[in-house]
């Protein structure tokens, strides 16, 4: 099985790069941390990689707004090469700040007429919060969420409230199955009972007031995915906030996202060869 290579993009203020690289490596990938300045100097660099990951942190301090400055750099200087990357059916993952950058750069959702259809803005609480949330996937569009039935992961952000520009936009995203990851109440509904993922879940289960409880979004192909929670922070049993109360020792829920990325690519490399 071929080993996919992951380009982990760093910018001033990126701070989850090392543990994200560790998670990808645990899942079987090779990783390289690449500074945005190096990428701007050598725009062909992504050609040597199968997966692009924008990790968490505070790129450029989140000054002005979270992810805005790095998103503009990508829009101004890297739009074409990264759209080529997408077109080559490669994978792009944005975690937390990386999700904010993907969304604001237009890589995740097209900016029709130059205006973004959705954004991530200030939490309803008005402040940064670190807490664990229950997540459920919606639909099967997203490569990164294959086989995932639910996940328990931490969020740590101030600007994670997903807002669309209007209801038709939101409905269109939902209809295309792009609103792939939702915050959920901890007690799952009784088996067989279909829950409506759009029904507002109260704070703190929906930690920021996101529309339709959206925690993660993918592009129409399912190969570009951004999420606010941090999968790289739950890959070990001892990452779980209540691991001392749980006897069975398993890998953390977040590892599935990295494994899916590696497997997808390993599989597709195989089919191509």
């Amino acid at each position: 099985m071929a080993t996919p290579r992951v380009l982990i993009l760093r910018a001033p203020g990126t701070n989850c790069d090392q543990e994200t690289a560790f998670a990808f490596e645990r899942a079987g990938a090779e990783t390289e941390l690449v500074h945005i300045n190096r990428l701007l100097e050598d725009r062909r660099l992504p050609n040597a990689f199968q997966i692009l990951c924008l990790p968490g942190g505070f790129s450029y301090g989140d000054d002005i707004a979270a992810g805005r400055i790095l998103a503009n750099q990508i829009r101004h200087h890297l739009d074409d090469v990264l759209h080529e990357f997408k077109a080559a059916e490669k994978l792009i993952l944005g975690i937390c700040n990386g999700f904010q950058v993907l969304l604001k750069s237009g890589l995740l959702l097209d900016h029709a007429d130059g205006a973004p259809p959705a954004t991530l803005t200030w939490n309803d609480s008005g402040r940064f919060e670190d807490r664990w949330v229950q997540l459920v996937p919606a639909g099967t569009a997203c490569v990164f969420l294959r086989g995932v039935e639910s996940m328990y992961l931490p969020i740590a952000h101030a600007e994670g409230k997903f807002v669309t520009s209007n209801a038709p936009v939101r409905n269109a995203l939902a209809d295309r199955g792009q609103l792939v990851l939702r915050y959920a109440a901890p007690a799952p509904a009784a088996a067989g009972c279909e829950t409506d993922l759009d029904t507002p879940v109260p704070f703190p289960h929906n930690p920021n007031g996101s529309e339709a409880n959206v925690a993660g979004v993918c592009d129409p192909s399912g190969r570009v995915f951004g999420l606010m929670p941090h999968p790289e922070r739950y890959i070990e049993h001892t990452h779980h906030p209540r691991w001392t109360r749980i006897d069975r020792r398993e890998d953390g829920d977040g590892l599935a996202i990295f494994r899916n990325a590696v497997h997808y690519f390993a599989d597709s490399l195989q089919t191509q060869s």
């Binding site: 701070n15 998670a23 790289e232």
Partner: peptide, 16 residues
């Protein structure tokens, strides 16, 4: 106070 701090970044959290 505690929730306003990121207490898990760097991926090594064991006892929060």
């Amino acid at each position: 106070v505690i929730r306003q701090y990121d207490h898990e970044v760097q991926g090594g959290s064991v006892i929060k």
